[in-house]
Simulated scan of single mutants.
Amino acid sequence: MTSREDKEAAVQAQSGSAGAGRLYVVGTPIGNLGDLSPRAAEAFRAADSVLCEDTRVTGKLLAHLGISKPLVRCDENVIAARAGALVDRMATGEVFAFASDAGMPGVSDPGQVLVDAARDAGIAVEVVPGPVACVTALVASGIPCEHFFFEGFLPRKHGERVRRLRELAFVPGALLFYESPRRAADSLAAVAEVFPGRDVALCRELTKLHEEVLRASAPALLDEVQAREELRGECVIVVAPPSAEELAAWRAGSGAAIGAPASAEDRDAALRTDIREALAAGESVSAIAKRLSQKHSLKKRTVYELALELQES
């Protein structure tokens, strides 16, 4: 056997018999190709096809590895519709590797839909760990990270951003947010409004040549970012944990208005209202499931099924 064949056999042996269908969930670099693990390359070689968000992005990655495989687009617009057929193919013995454009699939991207479907069908799922932008940013920021909460993307509208940040005021750890360079200043404005006394870091171009970590008080960081003509590269915002004094002030000043647990009926009503508004605005069911599952801390499948129900009603 050649060295490559030995590696492929080893990968297959890790999860069971060589003829069994399975799903490899493969972490990929967030910017630096040197972070691609040998095990990730082995998983791509062992797969019959590679599922990905953007065939162009993943095609370049495979070309870098000298691998040629059929590529199947599985972005947020189509993955829920295709998951069933893909699971059926795995049940007959096909092996798929799933990769997002960068980082770990399932972390603020549509991969979790496919993982859920595969596990529900009894398909073997093997995760090949890789870089994660939010954790990389947390460490690079120097902000205390004994505890942290990953939110994903904040809402687009300022009022909704502020409301969500106030809901997170009682989290006893660092807060992590993803943001595009176009909206980074808007999100920092909301952070400065809600948490003016906390340190905040903006991390961009992580692991790349022009990696940058800016850290200051929330208002000072906002001023620095607004003074720039342009930001480039995907961003991670890291907000420092609340001090004991800040927590006490929030509790004393907010009473039950902020942080008090809502009833199940109120949470369901709020979710249904958000879904109806999104459907009326023309947002796809898959996009609604991704965004609102983060906002309401629910499984994407739960939101997806409810959105389908409301769409048909």
Score class of each variant (00 low, 15 high):
Q112N: 07
A121V: 12
K60P: 02
P38C: 09
E246D: 05
E277W: 00
P70Y: 03
F150W: 11
E151C: 03
V135L: 15
R291C: 06
I258Q: 08
W250K: 03
V57Q: 05
P196L: 02
A169Y: 08
A185P: 09
D88A: 15
K7H: 14
D35P: 07
A63Y: 11
A216P: 05
P105L: 12
F170E: 01
L292I: 08
L306A: 08
T207E: 00
P242L: 05
D120T: 10
R301V: 05
G130E: 08
L62M: 01
S254F: 12
V115M: 13
F96M: 13
G173F: 03
I30N: 03
V132K: 05
S17D: 12
A189K: 03
L51D: 04
A289L: 03
G106D: 09
E179D: 05
V162M: 10
V57W: 01
E246P: 11
F96A: 02
T302H: 11
K69R: 15
D88H: 14
D268C: 14
A83N: 07
V238A: 09
H210M: 14
S108V: 13
L175F: 01
G111S: 09
R272F: 07
V200S: 00
A216G: 04
G16V: 06
G111R: 09
S254C: 14
V87Q: 11
C203D: 01
A240I: 03
E277R: 12
A201E: 07
G130P: 05
A185T: 11
V236D: 02
R89V: 02
G152M: 10
P155S: 06
E126G: 00
A9Q: 14
E211M: 09
E205F: 04
G27Q: 05
V200I: 08
R82N: 12
K208E: 11
I288V: 00
A121R: 09
Q12I: 13
P242A: 15
R4W: 14
S180P: 00
P129W: 12
G142F: 01
R276K: 06
P196S: 08
I258A: 03
D116L: 04
A216C: 10
L271K: 01
A216H: 00
I288L: 08
P241M: 12
T136N: 14
C52K: 01
A249C: 09
P129T: 08
T55A: 08
R301H: 00
L114D: 04
A46S: 08
E8W: 00
A280F: 03
Q12N: 13
L298H: 10
H64I: 06
R291E: 07
E245P: 05
E212N: 00
P129M: 13
F150R: 11
E146C: 13
E205T: 05
R166K: 15
V113W: 12
P38Y: 04
A185G: 06
M90R: 04
G173I: 02
E167K: 15
L175V: 06
A85R: 13
E94D: 13
A278Y: 02
C203I: 06
